[in-house]
């Protein structure tokens, strides 16, 4: 959240059994967002490492009214950063997480 003001974390333990993850996103630093958004609300969603893209999820969140169009890049970046970290963790610990 240090640069986007958004925080993304695993909503459930990653058992590495499949490509689907449960993630949770919320606004940690409202001052860093440009458009209207709902404070104090966490948005939980599933993310498939093989088929989903952070941009697509961000677009759906903007369409659903969670964030303003001007923040979709920040939302996508926050999701991308977390997914990249999870992929690296999975590569390091192939024996399950």
């Amino acid at each position: 959240a240090e640069d986007t003001g958004l925080r993304v974390e695993l909503a459930e333990e990653d058992d590495c059994s499949n490509s689907s993850l449960a993630l949770r996103l919320w606004v940690e630093d409202p001052k860093k967002l440009k458009g209207k958004h709902k404070d104090n609300e966490a948005i939980e969603f599933s993310f498939n490492l093989e088929t989903d893209t952070p941009e697509e999820v961000a677009f759906e969140m903007v369409k659903s009214g969670f964030f303003h169009e001007s923040d979709s890049k920040a939302v996508a970046k926050s999701i991308r950063d977390r997914v990249t970290l999870i992929k690296k963790t999975r590569e390091k610990k192939p024996a399950g997480c």
Partner: peptide, 27 residues
């Protein structure tokens, strides 16, 4: 619970719930 709201968009499900106080950074 009444505090949780489910939103569907293009086949994706978003579950909205309050962020626990402990997780909110003091702004």
């Amino acid at each position: 619970s009444s505090l949780t709201q489910v939103v569907h968009s293009a086949g994706r499900r978003f579950i909205v719930s309050p962020v626990p106080e402990s997780r909110l950074r003091e702004s």
